[in-house]
């Protein structure tokens, strides 16, 4: 077990948790009841994936030698537990890490804004996720391979949902086309990071555990191109790509997400209901 592997699991888990949280913000605010439920279902899928991955991450963390455990995270609340000699669990992973200890991509923390932004963000992420989990099924890590296989069925539906909405709005009225184009173009700057291999990705790919993101890039771009085409949307222009999330450098959005998500556990430690 290595710290790299732990960070790799957390990358995947954090993507799922933050994406799920963002989508859950639509609960009770969906444009119609049916879509409100659709998004809540999808949010719960992400949360379920995050749970499996955090359980595995916590398990892996607890097996690390003490000296290494102390170096992995710098979040004070988590360090306090580690210093107390307690094993950590999935909840500690989700609720006690600060933003800089989160490794999700910047894309998933971007705001919902409106239905077009939500659909575009989902399209970019779901398409990545679909190809990523497809690759991860062949991981030499049995747990990750099993989680990938189970998640892939869910992710296939997510991708169908987001593709259809992007097509529906892009190829809809003049107003919906304009807003869908704006969302697709704005979020484009956050897509470069999805298939950029940071140190963790490279190490895990080399070890046979991780997915080759360079290979994935072409598949992702082809799939996205097809959907944009069908949606009569223009391919966003290539330009500066934002990155840093996978290494713990985030946009301002993450802080707000964590504040809302974590305050209860931090105010009333170990609270259950």
């Amino acid at each position: 077990m290595s710290v790299q592997k732990l960070k790799y699991i957390l990358q995947i888990a954090d993507n799922a948790l933050i994406m799920g949280h963002r989508l859950s913000e639509w609960c009770g605010h969906g444009p119609i009841l049916e879509q409100d439920i659709a998004l809540t279902n999808i949010a719960l899928d992400h949360l379920g994936q995050a749970r499996s991955l955090y359980q595995y991450a916590a398990e892996q963390f607890n097996e690390l030698p003490r000296a290494e455990q102390e170096k992995v995270f710098t979040s004070p609340a988590l360090q306090a537990i580690i210093a107390g000699g307690q094993p950590i669990d999935e909840d500690d992973m989700a609720y006690l890490r600060d933003g800089w200890d989160f490794y999700n991509v910047l894309l998933v923390e971007q705001a919902n804004k409106d239905w077009a932004y939500t659909a575009a963000r989902s399209l970019y992420y779901d398409t990545f996720n679909y190809h990523f989990y497809t690759g991860l099924q062949n991981s030499n890590d049995e747990t990750l391979a099993a989680i990938a296989e189970k998640s892939l069925k869910e992710v296939t539906y997510h991708m169908r949902w987001s593709s259809e909405w992007v097509i529906r709005l892009g190829d809809g009225t003049a107003e919906s086309h304009k807003r869908m184009q704006e969302a697709a173009s704005y979020l484009w700057q956050y897509t470069g990071e999805l298939c950029t291999m940071v140190e963790t990705d490279k190490a895990m790919y080399k070890a046979g555990t991780g997915v080759n993101l360079d290979e994935l890039k072409t598949k992702w771009a082809t799939a996205i191109g097809k959907v944009l085409d069908e949606a009569t949307l223009a391919q966003p222009e290539e330009g500066w790509m934002q990155q840093g999330g996978k290494e713990g450098r985030h946009t301002e959005h993450l802080g707000y997400i964590l504040a809302e998500m974590q305050y209860m556990q931090r105010t009333y430690p170990n609270m259950e209901w």
């Binding site: 119609i32 049916e34 879509q35 439920i37 659709a38 279902n41 169908r160 949902w161 259809e164």
Partner: peptide, 20 residues
Amino acid sequence: SLHAADAQMAIENARDVYTR
């Protein structure tokens, strides 16, 4: 019953509302 813009969306909405 449910609301949907077309048949495909109706099937997907039905999946989300009635087969959870």
